[in-house]
Simulated assay, not measured.
Amino acid sequence: MDKLLIKQCLFHGSWLVFAFMAWLLWRMRKPGHRVLAMVALAGCLVFAWARFVEPQVLRVRTTTLVGTGARADIALISDIHLGVYKGRGFLERLVQRLDALPVQAVVIAGDLTYEPQADDLGTLFEPLARLRVPVYAVLGNHDQQAPGPDIDRPLREALMRHGVHIIEGRIVEDAHGFRWAGLGDRWARKDDPGFVKAAPSAKPTLVVAHNPDSAMNLAPADAALVLAGHTHGGQIRIPWLYHRVIPSAHGFDRGEQFAHTPDGAVRVFTTTGIGEIGLPLRLFNPPTIDVLHLRP
């Protein structure tokens, strides 16, 4: 509760930056304080952008991936993190944007929540029911285990009630000639790909995982492509510094990369996510919907 209170104070107290900026403008009238006030004002403007503007931007980034064996157009999102910093209103905007895209499916690669009220999950995620295309999802560490609280069961029930297909631990055939497979969260030790390895197929398999590090347990024969999130691309993407906060043990960041496993290179695409954790800030890294054109 104390940590939640601190986050809420930070989120709402950050509005005071505008009062501080007004005070700095007043101080700039005095020549002796002008340079220092201008520097502080520039810092406040960057903070205001990262707090109030960029987290509300919804960027659509399009990538064509050739050689996946599949032909499909999908929208990949992750890390929506509804709860402390983002609410249902933002999800409604996100759904409206997704519904306007020429895609065949929406994939949510985990971390849908960030300390929400467990008894409000049904209402919170109701906008997802309006999507006109199938929605495939797995859960992430903030939904299942670390850092908690564990809302795995009520979240699954709420999502399924709104038509979302939770595909963890199972394989789903797609009408377009490929398969979906879902891995659970790696930090919760629920990403065992044994069920994928036990069901080889001539059809390409698209594996959805929250943590891109889960690709290290796969072989090229298991997955034509791994779709993941978790990293936020650093969230606050300050050059040379953001790498230190990316939660990947194998150097995954964002976009297309390869997991170099003992069995060969596994293709991975990591999206930078929609929401925020820790600080309610995004910088040089707006919330992103990745539209992937998969081509054989």
Rank of each mutant, 00 (worst) to 15 (best):
W180D: 02
D222E: 08
E115D: 14
P287D: 09
R237G: 01
N285Q: 08
R29K: 11
N217D: 05
Q257G: 12
I74W: 00
G275A: 07
A50P: 01
L159K: 11
E92K: 08
V66M: 12
P204M: 09
D99A: 13
W15G: 10
A100R: 15
Y242E: 11
A259P: 00
A40T: 01
N211W: 00
F269L: 00
P247Q: 09
R179T: 15
F47G: 02
Q257T: 13
E54L: 07
R244D: 05
H250A: 00
F195S: 04
H176Y: 12
P239Y: 12
H142Y: 12
G278L: 05
C44S: 15
L65V: 14
V60G: 05
V208A: 12
A198H: 03
T64L: 08
L45C: 15
P149T: 08
A50K: 02
K86W: 09
T231L: 12
D263S: 13
H33Y: 13
R282N: 08
V207K: 08
Y114L: 10
L139K: 07
D2H: 11
G233S: 13
A175V: 05
P193M: 00
S78K: 03
F258P: 01
N217R: 13
D174N: 15
R267M: 10
G67N: 14
A137P: 14
R186C: 00
A158E: 04
G169W: 02
Q104T: 09
V46Y: 01
D150H: 09
Q145M: 03
D143A: 06
L206R: 04
L294M: 09
H230K: 09
A221H: 07
E126F: 04
A175W: 02
L112R: 01
H162K: 08
L281N: 06
Q235G: 06
D99V: 04
A198K: 14
T205L: 11
T62S: 15
T205W: 02
R267C: 08
P55Q: 09
V60P: 03
R186D: 05
A199E: 11
L159H: 09
I289A: 07
R170V: 04
Y114G: 03
L121I: 03
V46M: 10
G278A: 07
E115N: 08
C9E: 05
I236M: 14
S14P: 10
F178V: 14
A105R: 07
I108A: 07
T68M: 00
L36H: 03
A181Q: 03
D253Q: 13
Q96K: 13
